[in-house]
């Protein structure tokens, strides 16, 4: 459950530190631990990707396994 969301969290933390991670949590309203428990629905993934793109300043698809 929440594998992609968890991966997005990991990438954002690696690339933008805890500052980036906290922004992602606040903007999505979903903490990493909650994301782990959530289903990877297309809607929630799209929302996470959109926020992650803005935080990183680049397309997160480049870093996701399989370029999801």
């Amino acid at each position: 459950m929440g594998l992609t969301l968890n991966e997005i969290y990991k990438i954002v933390t690696d690339k933008a530190g805890f500052k980036g991670r906290m922004r992602l949590a606040v903007r999505t309203g979903v903490s990493r631990t909650k994301a782990e428990e959530m289903a990877d629905t297309p809607e929630i993934i799209a929302k996470f990707k959109k926020e992650a793109d803005e935080i990183l300043g680049q397309d997160i698809d480049k870093f996701l396994r399989g370029g999801k």
Binding site: F18, R21, M22, A25, S31, R32, K34
Partner: peptide, 11 residues
């Protein structure tokens, strides 16, 4: 502890 902190800011 970062996980718990994150819970605090997401409510």
């Amino acid at each position: 502890i970062i996980d718990i902190f994150e819970e605090a800011i997401t409510g």
